[in-house]
Nucleic acid binder design. Structure first.
Length: 193
DNA sequence: AGGAAGATCTACT
DNA sequence: GTAGATCTTCCTA
């Protein structure tokens, strides 16, 4: 399994978001490996995007979005950690929010972390998946293009996927474009329609 | 010190 | 299915 290289993320966030579907998110905790297939993402831009954390200009906490691509960008909202990956064209600003994954490895551990029965609910939402994978602020700035990282994204089967798009969820002011992408028919996405 | 934030859970109609 | 309360940190005053 090959790790996605840095230039994968050095493109328009919407393209990266769409291409991340079907890729595998891997979380290493000591020797244990948790992994899942990415089934839902959202693209966020910089200062032109009212929903973006970078909208109001560069701040301390969103500095990562202005910097190198391929880094994990993590922040807390409503008591949940949200996982983004910095992605944008050279000199631009943006990130991709990972909203949901389909658990593959370490399901038992995820179940313990989440305290739910069904596999479908283990990581079917941005806050849920960080809890299931034990992702916290400590992983902020983690390079997901490094093989020895605690958090990385590797190549997966993306052929045969039926990709849909819709408007983003939960944002107060959305852009006219559809910037949410998800795998059609997957039971593991956070919401339908 | 206070409020706001890309959500989640629970308990109802 | 919808609605409401609650969640926990960071930012701004």
């Amino acid at each position: 399994m090959s790790v996605l290289s840095k230039d994968f993320y050095e493109r328009d966030p919407a393209l990266v978001a769409k291409d991340l579907l079907g890729k595998i998110l891997v979380r290493k905790i000591n020797s244990e490996i948790l992994s899942g297939k990415i089934v839902e993402t959202e693209a966020y831009y910089g200062e032109n995007d009212p929903a973006s954390k970078a909208y109001k200009g560069r701040k301390m906490f969103n500095e990562l979005m202005f910097m190198d691509v391929g880094k994990a960008f993590i922040y807390m909202v409503h008591g949940n950690w949200l996982l983004n990956i910095v992605a944008h064209l050279k000199g631009d600003v943006g990130a991709v929010l990972i909203r949901a994954i389909e658990p593959l490895k370490g399901i038992e551990t995820m179940r313990k972390n989440r305290n739910v029965k069904g596999v479908c609910d283990l990581a079917s939402g941005p806050g849920k998946l960080t809890k299931a994978l034990e992702i916290t602020k400590e992983l902020n700035g983690m390079d997901v293009t490094k093989k020895n990282s605690q958090l990385l994204v590797v190549e997966g089967k993306s052929e045969g996927l039926q990709i849909c798009s819709s408007h983003r969820i939960g944002v107060k002011a959305d852009l006219p474009q559809k910037l949410r992408f998800f795998v059609n028919g997957s039971k593991f996405v956070s919401k339908f329609s």
